[in-house]
Amino acid sequence: MNKVSINSFKFQVLCFVLLLATCNLQLATSAFAADAADIMKKSQLTFLYPGKDMKVRVYMKLISKDGKERVREMTMLRKNYQEGGDQRYFIYFYQPADVRDMTFMVYKYAAKDDDRWIFMPALNMVRRIAANDKRSSFVGSDFTYEDVSGRDIEDDNHSIAKEEKLGDKDAYVIKSAPKDEKGADFSYKLSWIDKGNFLPLKEEYYDKRGELYKTFTADEVKNVQGFPVITKRTMKDKKTEHKTEVTYQKTEFNIGLDDDVFTERYLKKPLKKWIE
């Protein structure tokens, strides 16, 4: 009888201690989570929002498993309207040759679906394109629209998986898992964020079976007008062994893009100075 009560007292103590420990653990995790989300937010700003606006000549090489290539060459203009939020993109295509003069415009909103327009020179016609799927391929490359213009930080749960050196750089390794399972192709992704400049050095995407399926790498980082810019990047698909290499040339920031650059009129007839 006596023995039992002592035991049950011990048990209660144990429970209490355990409870405390769990609470602590939870506190620790959520603190970490906040840190992780902050890191990701900061990284996105450095990666996708530097300057007021930007102009860049983009060479994109789509390379198949057996080394066959398709090239896309374009000028991309970008203007920020809200830090970490609304942006506008304008893209003029040089290559492939038969799509030269095609233009593409995106109004990116933080809170709702993007607006996209396309101009078809062969038909001399502008059409709006609905953007229901940010996960679809960007111009046939291994990058999705989301990879190009960024994924909402709030859509994922972030945590610091570990901190390690990648090459000679110290990096946070952030694990991001979508809050809504259906809202992403990946079940989680790992991002190596440079502790120095907060640019992503590498990203690994894991599918619903937990298998790695694509990898992003920042292959060359340059300083342009004081902004760290990833001038060479690769997205490699592990399953198809297809990859896309992107090179940025003639990157310029704060060139003073007018709002009317991002209109239908300019879509049909872009000003030379902006696209060359």
């Binding site: 038969d98 593409f104 396309i118 078809m120 020179p121 062969a122 394109i129 679809s136």
Partner: peptide, 12 residues
């Protein structure tokens, strides 16, 4: 070519 390119801009 432009139709196909447009298609490839969004499709898998």
């Amino acid at each position: 070519a432009q139709y196909l390119f447009m298609f490839s801009m969004s499709a898998k």
